[in-house]
Design a protein around this nucleic acid. Structure first.
Lengths: 93, 93
DNA sequence: AATTTATTTAGAAAAACATCTAAATAGAAG
DNA sequence: CTTCTATTTAGATGTTTTTCTAAATAAATT
């Protein structure tokens, strides 16, 4: 949790690509892994960081674990970034 | 350059704090360093990563080097993040 | 020209991270 | 209740990152 974990999670190209995959809807850990040439263990590790950052949540179903985007945290990131846009100042923070 | 460098740069709490400091206007490397308990060499290294990511630019003046926010790249980050917001889909990308 | 002030570069050490293999867990199916 | 499938956890290893100290550069001042 916290913007620090969020930005740390977003710092990895692999994790950003996982998020892009999830734009198309929920995927199981295995399905996500198919898109990368890494072991399932490594993917699992990346997923746990995305989860810790609240960028995704998981739903356990049968013996699968499905991952889904958590849209709400992206709003937080947007707000953080917005403070640096041209014409922004202290007001409204 | 590129979104990868940008997110990598934003992944560090120190570098994010530097950006926040620069919201108040340009600062020299030394002035930035005063806000942290790190050597000037370390700060210089962080500044060079922010520069590489185009999040800041530098202006050399006298024997000082001033750093300033580069607002344009934050727009790029906003766009990247926006694709994950609720109600976003492929259209418009 | 020598010295001081501001910053960067180089190189080294320590900490954090990514990735792997192997073992553990958990549920499904035989 | 054993075996198979999906995923995670643990521990090891290599790579990247952070940070430091010391040396280098560069402009300003004496």
């Amino acid at each position: 949790m916290g913007i620090a974990d969020t930005f740390k999670a977003l710092g990895s190209p692999v994790r950003r690509e996982i998020l892009v995959l999830l734009r198309g809807g929920r995927l199981s850990a295995g399905e996500i892994g198919e898109h990368f040439s890494m072991t399932g263990a490594t993917i699992s590790h990346h997923l746990s960081q995305l989860k810790k950052a609240d960028l995704v949540f998981e739903i356990k179903e049968k013996n699968f674990v499905y991952y889904e985007l958590n849209a709400t945290v992206f709003e937080e990131v947007m707000l953080w970034v917005a403070q640096f846009r041209e014409g922004e100042n202290d007001e409204g923070k």
